[in-house]
């Protein structure tokens, strides 16, 4: 059973003068035991998506299940298997960390003893044990975030939703798969590697030592490469799209050597997630992460 299924989710925010289609028909399937990174520019619909899947918002159209529970009809069962950590640390500032965790545990329907035990475990795990009995108001931002995350884990959820700003490198490392969302639609989906090759594949960059040898180097790249080369005059750097990875790199090094062309540097370059993002949306990313476990 997939952890998350979504079909044609639509959410429209209406005000007197405007209509914003926050979600405009989102389809998504996330397998159990995987981490999905939901990335997109500001206002792309990431938070709306998380809020709908965690039952905080109702969609205007479409349907979705989380852990097999319908987000509208079975909202209460759904809530007992998820943990949510939102954009700000949603903890009670006037309680201690231990009291916060105990409270959330109770509201998660653990009994008082279980709740206390689980709170103790999490305080240990999140390195909050020394500050456990201090009022949260005195906590630093980082400590609050840790407590917030611990609160999301109090009921040992099967799915964890994290709605927070994430760096692309983090997403690249943590997420098994990535969905890129823009203007309320999922515009790309796959592993980081799949998305990268989808966007433009690999390129080979050569920095030629002697400006006079540029012409001959261009000829070789035109022959060996799989597309039009580009020259950066200033740095004497030639870039050419190339398929064939490391093998192609070796071939170009050999051909340049045979032609007696000295090089300062040569590299096989893969696109980063930043490149992917820019190519797909035309905007820089501000990612949010949604994780399913």
């Amino acid at each position: 059973m997939p952890a998350i299924t979504a079909e044609g989710l639509v959410k429209i925010y209406r005000s007197r003068h405007s209509e914003v289609h926050a979600l405009d028909g989102v389809d998504l399937v996330v397998e159990e035991g995987t981490v999905l990174g939901l990335l997109g520019p500001n206002g792309a619909g990431k938070t709306t998506m998380v809020r709908i899947l965690t039952t905080l918002l109702r969609p205007d159209a479409g349907h979705a299940t989380v852990a097999g529970f319908d987000i509208v009809r079975e909202a209460q069962q759904l809530r007992s298997v998820i943990g949510l950590s939102g954009q700000y640390a949603a903890v009670d500032e006037n309680l201690t960390a231990r009291e916060n965790l105990w409270m959330f545990g109770r509201l998660y329907q653990l009994n008082s003893a279980e709740s206390r035990k689980r709170a103790g475990e999490l305080l240990e795990q999140f390195d909050l044990i020394d500050a456990a009995d201090r009022v949260v108001k005195t906590y630093s931002g980082g400590m609050r975030r840790r407590l917030d995350l611990a609160s999301a884990l109090i009921g040992r959820p099967r799915l964890l939703f994290l709605d927070e700003p994430t760096y692309l490198e983090e997403a690249d490392e943590l997420a098994d798969t990535i969905a890129v969302i823009d203007r309320g639609k999922v515009i790309a989906r796959g592993t980081a590697d799949e998305l990268k090759s989808q966007v433009g594949g690999e390129r080979i960059e050569v920095v030629v030592h002697d400006r006079a040898a540029l012409d001959r180097a261009e000829e070789i790249l035109a022959r060996d490469g799989s597309g039009q080369w580009v020259l950066d005059e200033h740095t004497r750097k030639l870039t050419v799209p190339a398929t064939g990875g490391a093998g192609k790199l070796i071939e170009i090094v050999r051909d340049l050597g045979d032609a007696g062309i000295a090089i300062d540097d040569i590299a096989l370059r893969r696109p980063t997630l930043d490149d992917v993002f820019l190519a797909l949306t035309g905007r820089a990313s501000s990612g949010d992460d949604e994780a399913a476990a």
């Binding site: 965690t54 039952t55 905080l56 949510l84 939102g86 700000y88 009670d92 509201l107 998660y108 609160s151």
Partner: peptide, 10 residues
């Protein structure tokens, strides 16, 4: 955000 957290709990 506390009301949101409460609303996400069973």
């Amino acid at each position: 955000g506390l009301l949101d957290r409460f609303r996400s709990l069973p």
